[in-house]
């Protein structure tokens, strides 16, 4: 076994343990944002796409790499944006402290709910 592989496996196992430790403390209230954020983090696969692109030769590999880039970018960008949007909705009780509660410039109009109710 090469040293590289041993290092990689060690890192994998320790990261799993760190993940278990950090994430088991997240309260149920935040499980959806947590999942969505974790989802965005696995968009790091984009880094892998960029790395593997260096090997690509020939039309098939080009197509695969391009598709992979589309997938990974959609995953990472969409994931972080939607998590942020979700977390922006979690607010304190309005009565608590009216002054410093929301950011000074709350977007004048939250984007109106898009009417795709029918899809549900």
């Amino acid at each position: 076994m090469s040293t590289n592989l041993l290092i990689d496996i060690t890192v994998l196992v320790l990261s799993l343990l760190v993940g278990f430790e950090v994430i088991s403390k997240v309260p149920a209230t935040l499980h959806t944002p947590l999942m969505s954020a974790a989802n965005a983090i696995h968009g790091v696969v984009l880094v892998g796409v960029i790395t593997v692109a260096g090997l690509a030769g020939g039309p098939l590999a080009y197509a695969l790499v391009t598709l992979a880039a589309v997938f990974a970018a959609m995953n990472v960008v969409g994931g972080f944006v939607v998590t942020d949007r979700m977390l922006g909705m979690f607010r304190d009780a309005p009565s608590a402290d009216p002054a410093p509660a929301p950011a000074p410039a709350p977007a004048p109009a939250r984007e109106p709910p898009v009417a795709d109710d029918r899809a549900e």
């Binding site: 990261s15 760190v18 994430i23 983090i41 880094v47």
Partner: peptide
């Protein structure tokens, strides 16, 4: 970085 992030997500 892929290994670490992937493992974190796997744990979550």
């Amino acid at each position: 970085v892929l290994i670490i992030a992937g493992a974190l997500v796997g744990a979550a």
